[in-house]
Amino acid sequence: MIQYIVDAFAEQLFEGNPAAICVLDQWIEDDLMLKIAQENNLSETAFTVKEGNGYRLRWFTPGGEIDLCGHATLATAFVIMNYVDKTLNNITFQTLSGELIVKKNQDLYEIQFPSYSLISIEVTKDMEKAIGFRPLEAWMGRDLVCVLQNEEQVESATPDLQKTKELPGMLLHVTAPSAVFDCVSRSFAPKFNIPEDPVCGSGHCHIAPLWAQKLKKDKIIARQASRRGGTLQCKINNDRVELAGKAVLFAIAELFVTNNKRNVDE
């Protein structure tokens, strides 16, 4: 089995968010996909199989399968368009979050995702204890989004990961307005054995619509202020979020694992 490792939402190697990509002929057992994800120990490992004119795509963290991952979708499209079928300029993926379309625009990969509906919730002492700063606002979608006072708080935050696990939502995102970009954010996923996600695409399906509403604009330049860092160009269109970014290949490897074939519908 061939596996690619790609830095997504990256201008150059060693920035953005790395993802492992396995392009399969047929599906393998879920348990094996999880073990590969755990062995890689990256925030996401993506598995894809060609179906008709498109591909079915699944994402695994070291803690289990998830319903949406932006950077691994971008990385998968990059691999297919550059190493599997160079004639393609767009790909339709079938996923747990529905149909996702990726278009190649020169060196940018543009992906349309469903945006998450956000509900304003009460800021609690548990949030303050977990983050180390008291949020100005808290919003709930699939994940918890906490708005901090400024980008310095976002950059210096060192959340207590055990306390973060006790907060609502799958992931925790902290965000604030930025002097250079429209917003700056960081993403934490200890419930999935990921202390910090370097660049979180699905997180920006929460963050971008929030700042679009606050700033009254439909195009957002977002910066993920992790150690690796990454920039996302976001466009909001009703209930969809378009994320665009670049990708860089880091490695191609052969995995020596038993390929137990199965039907994805079983």
Results as ranks from 00 to 15, higher is better:
residue 49 V to W: 04
residue 197 D to R: 06
residue 259 N to H: 14
residue 115 S to R: 12
residue 78 F to W: 04
residue 256 F to L: 10
residue 263 N to G: 06
residue 36 I to F: 03
residue 158 T to Q: 14
residue 37 A to H: 03
residue 57 L to E: 01
residue 19 A to K: 02
residue 48 T to R: 00
residue 217 K to M: 08
residue 111 I to S: 01
residue 155 E to K: 14
residue 234 C to F: 02
residue 131 I to A: 05
residue 178 S to V: 01
residue 46 A to V: 03
residue 216 K to G: 06
residue 207 I to L: 10
residue 210 L to I: 11
residue 50 K to N: 08
residue 131 I to C: 03
residue 254 E to S: 12
residue 257 V to S: 11
residue 86 K to F: 03
residue 167 L to V: 14
residue 53 N to A: 15
residue 110 E to L: 13
residue 73 T to P: 10
residue 57 L to T: 01
residue 212 A to V: 11
residue 77 A to M: 05
residue 139 W to I: 03
residue 41 N to E: 07
residue 130 A to G: 00
residue 6 V to Y: 00
residue 19 A to N: 06
residue 106 Q to P: 00
residue 13 L to Q: 08
residue 34 L to A: 04
residue 49 V to P: 02
residue 92 T to G: 06
residue 240 R to Q: 14
residue 18 P to E: 05
residue 10 A to Q: 03
residue 166 E to M: 12
residue 229 G to M: 08
residue 82 N to T: 03
residue 249 L to W: 01
residue 20 A to S: 11
residue 15 E to Q: 15
residue 257 V to C: 13
residue 240 R to Y: 15
residue 59 W to Y: 12
residue 135 P to K: 01
residue 35 K to H: 09
residue 265 D to C: 12
residue 147 V to E: 08
residue 34 L to D: 04
residue 68 L to G: 06
residue 62 P to M: 00
residue 124 T to V: 04
residue 202 S to H: 07
residue 102 V to D: 01
residue 155 E to G: 13
residue 178 S to Y: 05
residue 204 H to L: 09
residue 58 R to H: 05
residue 127 M to P: 01
residue 237 N to Q: 14
residue 141 G to K: 14
residue 113 F to V: 09
residue 48 T to S: 13
residue 157 A to P: 06
residue 199 V to F: 02
residue 144 L to I: 14
residue 151 E to Q: 10
residue 15 E to F: 00
residue 86 K to M: 11
residue 48 T to C: 09
residue 61 T to E: 04
residue 265 D to I: 15
residue 147 V to Q: 06
residue 2 I to A: 06
residue 191 K to R: 12
residue 141 G to P: 09
residue 215 L to K: 11
residue 200 C to N: 10
residue 13 L to H: 01
residue 33 M to Q: 10
residue 144 L to K: 04
residue 50 K to L: 02
residue 244 A to K: 12
residue 222 A to T: 03
residue 156 S to G: 09
residue 4 Y to K: 07
residue 169 G to R: 08
residue 21 I to C: 00
residue 210 L to S: 02
residue 30 D to P: 00
residue 40 N to P: 07
residue 198 P to M: 10
residue 219 K to C: 13
residue 263 N to H: 12
residue 97 S to F: 07
residue 103 K to D: 12
residue 90 N to Q: 13
residue 113 F to K: 06
residue 170 M to N: 10
residue 220 I to Y: 07
residue 31 D to G: 06
residue 106 Q to W: 00
residue 142 R to Q: 10
residue 29 E to Y: 15
residue 212 A to Y: 07
residue 132 G to C: 09
residue 24 L to V: 06
residue 37 A to F: 01
residue 8 A to H: 08
residue 1 M to S: 12
residue 67 D to W: 00
residue 190 P to G: 13
residue 51 E to T: 13
residue 63 G to H: 02
residue 117 S to P: 12
residue 141 G to V: 14
residue 38 Q to W: 00
residue 169 G to A: 11
residue 194 I to W: 00
residue 29 E to F: 15
residue 96 L to I: 06
residue 251 A to L: 14
residue 12 Q to I: 15
residue 12 Q to A: 15
residue 216 K to H: 15
residue 160 D to I: 09
residue 221 I to P: 14
residue 65 E to W: 10
residue 202 S to T: 09
residue 208 A to M: 05
residue 158 T to L: 10
residue 40 N to C: 11
residue 83 Y to D: 05
residue 146 C to H: 02
residue 228 R to I: 05
residue 82 N to Q: 11
residue 199 V to D: 02
residue 248 V to S: 03
residue 197 D to M: 03
residue 240 R to M: 12
residue 76 T to P: 04
